[in-house]
C-alpha cells in the first residue's frame, strides 16, 4: 500500500495528467474560444457553402458558408455551460436531499429515495424529451432539465455515503456532546463523502454533454443559429455526402472531451478511494 502511495507522488501519473491537460485545453477554449475565432460564427456567406478545408477556412464551411472552426470554437460554450451548470444543479439538489434523507431516516428517507428510484427507472433522454417538449428550448431550459434528471444520481450516492458515516462512533460522540444537525452534516458527514461526489460529478458532466448533444441533435436543444457541438453534428449528418468533414470535426471534439472527462473520473475514483491508499 505504502509503496504505491509513494510511487504516485514521484512518477507523473499519465492516467491522470493526460485527461486533465486535455480538459484544461477544452476549458481554455471555452473561455477564450470566441476571441480566437477567425470569423463571426453566425456570419453567412452564401457564395462559399459546404466548402472543404482551405487556407481561408481551415476546417471548411457549413451549409450557410459559415466558418466551421469559428463555430466549433464558440459552440463549446453552450455545450460546457449546460454540462457544468446542470451538474452543479444536480449536485447541490441531490446532495442536500441525500444528506437529509440519510440523516433523518424514516419518512423523509422513504419519500426521497423512492421518488429517486422512480425517476431512475426512466431513460434520461425520455425524461428530457418530456420536459423540453413543454418549455421553449434554450440554454436555461436545458440546464434545468438535465440538472433535475441527474438529481437522483447524486441523492443516491450522498444517501448511501451518509448512512455509512452517520452511525460511526465519532459522529455518535459529537451528537452526544450536543452538536446540531447542521454542524454534523456540514462538518462531519459532507467532508467524508466528498470523494464519491467528485467522481459522480465527472460522470455526470460527461453524461450531460451527451444528453445536450442528443437533444440538440433532435432539434430540442440549443436554438439555431447559435452553435453547439451536438446540434452541429445533428445538422451535419444531412450533408454527409456533400461535406463529410462537416460531421467529422464536431464529432471528434465531442468524443475527445467526453473521453477525457470519463478517464479523469475513473482515475480520480482510484486515487480518492481510501482503500487504495
Amino acid at each position: 500500500m505504502m509503496r504505491r502511495h509513494v510511487a504516485f507522488l514521484h512518477r507523473p501519473d499519465l492516467g491522470l495528467w493526460i485527461p486533465a491537460v486535455l480538459l484544461g485545453v477544452v476549458f481554455l477554449v471555452a473561455l477564450f474560444g470566441p476571441m480566437l475565432a477567425p470569423y463571426n460564427p453566425d456570419e453567412i456567406n452564401h457564395l462559399a457553402v459546404l466548402q472543404a478545408g482551405s487556407l481561408a477556412h481551415p476546417l471548411g464551411t457549413d451549409e450557410f458558408g459559415r466558418d466551421l472552426l469559428s463555430r466549433l470554437l464558440t459552440g463549446i460554450r453552450p455545450t460546457m455551460a449546460v454540462a457544468f451548470g446542470s451538474t452543479a444543479l444536480a449536485a447541490v439538489g441531490g446532495v442536500t436531499l441525500g444528506l437529509l434523507a440519510g440523516f433523518w431516516g424514516n419518512l423523509p428517507e422513504i419519500l426521497v429515495m423512492r421518488t429517486c428510484d422512480i425517476l431512475l427507472s426512466f431513460p434520461p433522454i425520455l425524461l428530457a424529451l418530456l420536459v423540453v417538449g413543454f418549455w421553449p428550448s434554450g440554454i436555461a431550459t436545458l440546464t434545468i432539465t438535465i440538472g433535475l434528471i441527474y438529481v437522483p444520481h447524486f441523492a443516491r450516492v450522498a444517501h448511501a455515503a451518509t448512512i455509512g458515516v452517520v452511525y460511526q462512533e465519532f459522529v455518535e460522540a459529537e451528537r452526544a456532546m450536543g452538536a446540531g444537525a447542521g454542524r454534523l452534516l456540514l462538518r462531519d458527514v459532507l467532508p467524508n463523502i466528498l470523494s464519491s461526489l467528485v467522481v459522480q460529478a465527472t460522470l455526470t458532466v460527461a453524461a450531460a454533454i451527451l444528453l445536450e448533444s442528443g437533444l440538440s441533435f433532435l432539434g430540442l436543444g440549443i436554438k439555431p443559429p447559435t452553435a453547439s457541438w451536438g446540434q452541429m453534428i445533428g445538422i451535419a449528418r444531412g450533408y454527409l455526402a456533400q461535406n463529410p468533414m462537416y460531421t467529422f470535426w464536431p464529432s471528434l471534439c465531442l468524443a475527445v472531451t467526453v473521453l477525457a472527462i470519463n478517464l479523469l473520473g475513473d482515475r480520480l475514483r482510484d486515487i480518492l478511494d481510501p482503500q487504495t491508499i
Binding site: I44, H46, L47, V49, E63, F64, G65
Partner: peptide, 8 residues
C-alpha cells in the same frame, strides 16, 4: 437578398 436564401 434573395440569393442568400436560395444558395443556403
Amino acid at each position: 437578398n434573395r440569393a442568400v436564401v436560395i444558395d443556403t
